[in-house]
């Protein structure tokens, strides 16, 4: 039983000029259970982590990351992107069970 993937937060800079390198910041609520811990009865708590993060811009993969059990709960992921044209970002977080959560945000150029 995988824990639900929480509400994602995504932030793009408000004012972006064409050709500018911007930082895209994301945060998602998730337990990131390592699979190494035991509960009070001594049973192993099954591993349950976000396994992969992908960011697509206008359908094209621009950033991806494989996550590992040592990464803290509520993973914060930031990456840089060169803004050439306006368009739509799609961010996807996928857990061990294969369930995923998606957020979209539009990039507008000033």
């Amino acid at each position: 039983m995988a824990a639900p993937i929480g509400q994602p937060r995504v932030r793009l800079p408000a004012q972006v000029r064409a050709g500018e390198i911007i930082e895209i910041r994301t945060l998602i609520s998730h337990v990131m259970e390592t699979g190494q811990r035991r509960d009070q009865a001594g049973n192993v708590i099954p591993r349950d982590i976000i396994r992969r993060f992908e960011a697509k811009f206008e359908g094209e993969l621009v950033f991806a990351m494989d996550l590992a059990p040592a990464i803290s709960a509520n993973p914060y992921i930031a990456f840089q992107f060169k803004a050439e044209r306006p368009g739509r970002f799609e961010f996807t977080w996928t857990n061990d069970a294969g369930e995923s959560r998606t957020a979209t945000q539009d990039l507008r150029l000033a």
């Binding site: 929480g6 509400q7 937060r9 932030r11 910041r25 945060l27 609520s29 709960a73 509520n74 914060y76």
Partner: peptide
């Protein structure tokens, strides 16, 4: 406030 994970709780 964006990076601070406590804001997930605030929300």
């Amino acid at each position: 406030d964006f990076l601070n994970p406590a804001f997930l709780w605030v929300e």
